[in-house]
Design a protein around this nucleic acid. Sequence first.
RNA 1: GCGGGAGUAGCUCAGCUGGUAGAGCGACAGCCUUCCAAGCUGUAGGUCGCGAGUUCGAACCUCGUCUCCCGCUCCA
Length: 514
Amino acid sequence: MANQDDNLLKKIVAHAKEYGFVFPSSEIYDGLGAAYDYGQYGSELKNNIKNFWWKAMVQMHENIVGIDAAIFMHPTTWKASGHVDAFNDPLIDNKDSKKRYRADVLIEEYIAKIEGKIKKEVQKAAKRFGDSFDETQFLATNGRVIEYNAQIKSINDRMKSAMETEQLNELKTLIEDLGIACPVSGSKNWTEVRQFNLMFSTELGSLAEGANTIYLRPETAQGIFVNFLNVQKTGRMKIPFGIAQIGKAFRNEIIARQFIFRMREFEQMEMQFFVKPGEEMKWYDHWKEKRIQWHKILGLGEDNYRFHDHLNLAHYANAACDIEFNFPMGFKELEGIHSRTDFDLKAHEEHSGKKLQFFDPQENQNYVPYVIETSIGLDRMFLAIMSASYKNETLEDGSERVVLKIPPALAPVKVAVLPLVKKDGLSEKAREILETLKFHFNCQYDEKDAIGRRYRRQDAIGTPYCVTIDHDTLQDHSVTLRDRDTTKQERIPISELTNRIEGLVSINTLLQKL
RNA sequence: GCGGGAGUAGCUCAGCUGGUAGAGCGACAGCCUUCCAAGCUGUAGGUCGCGAGUUCGAACCUCGUCUCCCGCUCCA
């Protein structure tokens, strides 16, 4: 099964390239790892996804507005957000098991072991002393416990100072001194510790002395937080309200792989929802519900989604979950919904010296709002649609076809206009119809090859409807409308064509179900 | 970064023990016209990933190098 799904991803990658959805970046120069370019159909599909998200998240809500912040931001932004410190992962490999670990995690696990020993001492003592046992006193006086605590403190101090001063060799020495062994191989045969800064940096010439390093944003969220006050004031926004943004983000991933699932340059669709402190869990649940609904109305199969609650929370969150999608590689994160508390706004208050608060007239007081974030990877959404849509079907007559059953509202090309044959004036009539339809839909015209082959071509790029002009059309002013998924045809008057297709492929058909 | 696999036409691949490239599909032009791929004719497209070595001669053998794919840690 793993093998089959592996092949499915390969097939999707090949199909995406062959039909102009996704190309490897800079391919003529042998490509650039983990970067991809969206082609003629891919960019249409991507735009349609953005549009559907933007409409559903911004335009359908009176209290949500959108912005488009710069990718370059003041360097202090990333100090405030915690990315400068927290996005540095020191990594170490075990040479025997070939497993990779975070050096700080290995040390923390070692500390956890010592803490476990303290707990055991406490349990033993509690048994021994019975009811008269005073835990605080025991912890403060017991010789072994004191020694354990001293160990923990010394290890912690060494680790912290090594992390802060970026003394990577000191981390390795610490691991060696503690005799930490690889859980898999059991050996202490470690490589050097290497640092991976997950933020891309570049130079900006005109900043003040020494401070000319600037980062490509690793998440779009901070563009929203630094504009919180601007938007709140100029938009006269009242809590609860949201600010949304679609944009690129950059992370220097150690390993970027699995096609467009994990790229170093990727696009996020984020909405930060500002709420009254204490109401965050209510809104967290609200957006979980809203977001899963958004996914499900696309009809990619409800079984393909599941929630995954985070147990280890990021430094800024007090609750977090993922919406996972059943990709060809298995269930993987597609969207994250996080309760970010007031961490970000407070941090920016501290670093900027500006008050980032909301005056609540009902409470008659100021407060820093809490934030619920919904953040979906656009490229992952693209891959989700591609993998759920890609079908290799055997038809009734035994022939095979490859069809992309993309939700019609998101399909790159909505309708293909096809003269049955390219003579007897059918081409001219078809062109005439195309001239009306093109104002409403992204259309394609094709008169080359047999009609069946043209249907298959449209199936391969996911065009939901084909309009075919035949000899009868010239007399009765009607055409056939062929459905991609069923291959069934229906004869309808040319005058009804636009309205009819509109009702089938418009994004409104989805929005109205929300 | 480490380990494993793979690079020949747009795609899928063939190419024997070394004798300087082939098929099918696709694309394009034309013919035919019949509502669900595979009718006929013709055309274009390759410095066999790149570099070096062995050899009279390398797609094939040797070494190096690059890229891609699969695992390990991280995330949207």
